[in-house]
Every structure is written in structure tokens, then in C-alpha cells.
Design a protein around this nucleic acid. Structure first.
Lengths: 252, 252
DNA sequence: ACCTTATGACAACACCGTTGACCTGTTAAC
DNA sequence: GTTAACAGGTCAACGGTGTTGTCATAAGGT
């Protein structure tokens, strides 16, 4: 039996499907992304994807060994899109802030795909490129290797995790999402001060704050803590440094 | 047609199934949790749960409108369990560290439920209790209201988001999970230094670090940044304080 | 002892991912 | 040009899934 999946480089025969479409890895990934955005994450199934492409479901197994393979390809495409819009400036703190916010925004732009891809290691081109770049930013800023890896890991996971969390909310049916917002106003903001003093005292802030994403603030905390570590490291190694980094905008 | 799901309070007829088991919401939730723990996250399906209970799958729909309902019931039980095992000591930093780690561990113990419940606001008893308690810890530590809410939000979202992220990995089929670990060893650790200098230089650290959860480190960063803010606030308001908090264990 | 009805069982529906066997058009070699 | 190989599309089937409409019956209140 000939191998089921042929590597993209070796593909040459471009036989169209019954409905005249010429399949390709790229076309499949793009269609899958469109499908997810338009009809929800649940809409992504081999069969539906086949239908959307005008091809038999089993054809897709000529391009991906199983659904998981397809998900990884989608995830990598998302990483690539985010990375392509980012230009590092040399100021590590500003660069990481910018990248983090872009990753988060990218996730929100494709909520369903983001939820699915957040926890996967693709080991593909764009992901590798992203790892290399971020590690570069940190090491050139002066973080020693072990520390750079630790901060890289925390930074990436934070962006992915918050991206997925906020995406999951965003992907809920509108009615459900509004119902949740209402809980803060209707339930929490009305708890009596004698049984729940702390909630009652901060109700105003809770209603305002919980409606927003906590990611920007969390990112700022992480960058701040990292800058602190860096200052420590620099002073310990005898450098004369006060970091002239772009300071965080005061949280509004 | 009588309503499909009868509220637990109204239940009185305790008819046993063919195999002699008397169903109840509690028994179903417990069995589901056991099933997840014993046979992995994939083992939870209505049909398998029915089989495990000695009942027809469709019987479960007398207790839960759909699978999602069941998952939420499981999640609620989890929040309760986590909160019940936590004892605040009065040291805000140690208390939050402890609670965060407990939440994370609780999520990992029941990955499927954690993923679903992470982005929901239940507004139910245990959740309210948790909000009140954490806000109390922060306000009594000296954080002003707005700051307390901001940190609370970041803290909770971080715990939930990382919990969900790590749970999602944990919920993958074992083969896939091992494949991911292999990617770091087989792909990343072997990239040549001339094309990917930063990855090559830190490969050893990457392989070791990426296999672990980044949550403990991220939590420590958040607590550190918060302590920094607190010191700032205290000194600005003229307090003579150097915080005697339990310091973070030096990251190993 | 009877009647109501809660609750369990059954069968069916429409999906799902995946595979093995088959068929056919494209391409490369002659 | 002709032809032979085979990449790649199609078909049918398997065993799984969540969910629902219908029926049967035993438990409980009267």
C-alpha cells in the first residue's frame, strides 16, 4: 500500500475533486479556519470540512494523518499570522508587551481556533521562529539562559492561557455571555455588607473590572517582575545599570 | 409531557435501575469524577457513564438536561472541594500562594471539568465565598480597593487560565502527550546553532522547563509584583514598613 | 387498592473519525 | 504519441457519540 500522506514537497499530481476543486494543505487549513470562525468550533469536523471543500471526507486523510494533525497546522498558521505583524525595536520590555498584546488580540480574532490550539506544541516552522525570536529578545536584554527560558515559558503560557480564556468567553452564545455579565451586577453588587463586607466595599470596582480582560494588567505584572529580576542580576554582576526601559503606562 | 428534568428537591420516587442501582444527582457526579480519574478524560461519555452506573444512558437525561449541565455540576463540586481544604493563616502572600496552587492542582485532578468551568461565572455559593475571601485577604494586607480588585482579578484569571491550559494538555490522549514532549527533545534540541542560536544555546533548559507547568513560576511573579506595589503604597502613605512576608522560595 | 406520575428502558436518529478497497486521471518515461 | 505507474479522489462500512420520542412500570399519596 502506498503511503497515505504524501509530504507537500512531493505533491505534483493535482487532480480536482468531483466538484472541481483542487485540494492543497493550504486550502484545507484556510477553509478550516473560515469554517471555525463562521460556524463555531463545533462546526469543524472532517465530514463538514469535506463538504465545505467539495470533497469526500476521506480525501483529507491524504493530507493529514488525523484530525489532530490538522489542528496543529491551523495553530501554526495562527502563530505565523501574529508573528508577521510584529516588529521588534530592541527595547525588550516594549517588544514583549507588544508581542503579548498581539498574541492576545490574535487569539480573540479567532476565538474558536485559539481555544483549540492554545495547549498544543506544533513543532512547526512558525512556532520555532517565535521561540527563537522571544528567547533572543530576553537573552539580548541580559537575562541568563535559565532565567530567559523561565520567563519565556511564563510569558508564552500566560499569553496563550489568557488568550484561550478570553476566547472561550467570547465564543459563548451572546445570550449566555450577557447573562454572565449580569451576574456581577445582579448578584455580586447586591450582596449585603454585613455578610460579605469585602465584596460590598469593592462592588463598584468589581463590576467595572471583571467585565474587562485581566490580561493587560497581568502582562504588566509579569514584565515588571521580570524587570526587577534583571535589575537584580545586573547589579549583582557589577553593572552600573538603572534600566532606562519604557516604563509601564500607569494602569488606568 | 412532564418535564424531563425534575429538580432534586422534588425527587421522591427512588426506583432502582435494572441492575439494582438507585440513581441520584450526587451518585452520578461522583461516578463521573471517578470515571475521569480512573480511565482518563476520554472515558467520560453519557453512554459509558450509564454503563458504569448500571443504567441506560438516556436515564441520565432525567437528571441533567445535557452533558454540559453535568460538567457544570462536576465543576461546582470541585470548587467546593478546593475551598474546603484551604486554611488562611493571615500572611497574605503565603495564603494566596497556597490557594493558587490548590486551585491549580484541583483543576489538574479533573481536567475535563476544569477546561469547561474555567471561563464561566457561576454566581453560586462557593464561588461567592471564594471572591469574598480572597478580596478580604488583599484588603486586610493593605491594598486599596481598586488595587485589590485588580490583583484579585489577575490572580483568579491566572489560576483558572493556567489550570485550564495545563488541564487541556493533561486531557490529551496519552500518545499525543508523549509526542509533544518528544518534540522538544527531537526537534527543538536539535536545531543548529547557526540558524537558531538562541534555541541552541538554551536547549538544555528548554527541554527541562517546557515539560513542567509554568504556573508556579508565573504565580510567584505575580505575587512578587504585587508585593512590590504594596511596598510602594505603604511607603507613599508614610508607613515605616519593610514587609516581613514569607518570601518566595528561590526558584530552583 | 387504586390512580398518577416519576423515572427507567428501548429504539432510533443524525452525527462523528477512521480505514480498506476501489477507481481514474495525470504524469513521466519511452 | 503511447503506455504504465501510482497519487489522489471516492465509496462503503465500522464502531463510536449525544440526544429524543415513546413506552412500561413500580412507587407514593390518597
Amino acid at each position: 500500500m502506498s503511503e497515505r500522506v504524501v509530504p507537500p514537497a512531493a505533491r505534483r499530481r493535482r487532480r480536482p475533486t468531483k466538484h472541481g476543486v483542487v485540494l492543497s494543505e493550504e486550502l484545507i487549513v484556510d477553509t478550516a479556519l473560515r469554517l471555525i470562525e463562521e460556524h463555531g468550533a463545533d462546526a469543524l469536523s472532517v465530514r463538514r470540512l469535506g463538504r465545505a471543500l467539495g470533497a469526500d471526507p476521506s480525501s483529507l486523510y491524504r493530507y493529514f494523518r488525523h484530525t489532530d494533525d490538522l489542528m496543529l497546522a491551523i495553530a501554526d498558521e495562527l502563530i505565523g499570522r501574529t508573528l508577521r505583524t510584529w516588529r521588534p525595536t530592541g527595547d525588550w520590555r516594549a517588544d514583549l508587551r507588544d508581542l503579548g498584546l498581539r498574541m492576545h488580540a490574535g487569539a480573540l480574532a479567532h476565538p474558536r481556533a485559539a481555544v483549540l490550539s492554545s495547549y498544543r506544541v506544533t513543532g512547526r516552522e512558525y512556532e520555532i521562529q517565535a521561540v527563537e525570536t522571544v528567547l533572543g529578545v530576553l537573552r539580548e536584554a541580559g537575562f541568563p539562559d535559565a532565567e530567559a527560558v523561565r520567563i519565556y515559558h511564563a510569558f508564552v503560557d500566560q499569553a496563550l492561557a489568557h488568550g484561550a480564556l478570553d476566547s472561550a468567553s467570547a465564543a459563548m452564545p451572546k445570550a449566555a455571555r450577557e447573562a454572565e455579565a449580569a451576574v456581577w451586577r445582579a448578584t455580586y453588587a447586591r450582596l449585603p455588607a454585613d455578610t460579605h463586607p469585602h465584596i460590598a466595599a469593592t462592588a463598584r470596582h468589581l463590576v467595572a473590572d471583571m467585565a474587562r480582560s485581566s490580561y493587560p494588567a497581568a502582562l504588566e505584572l509579569l514584565l515588571g517582575a521580570s524587570a526587577g529580576r534583571l535589575a537584580e542580576i545586573r547589579s549583582r554582576s557589577g553593572h552600573p545599570t538603572a534600566t532606562p526601559d519604557s516604563s509601564a503606562k500607569a494602569v488606568p
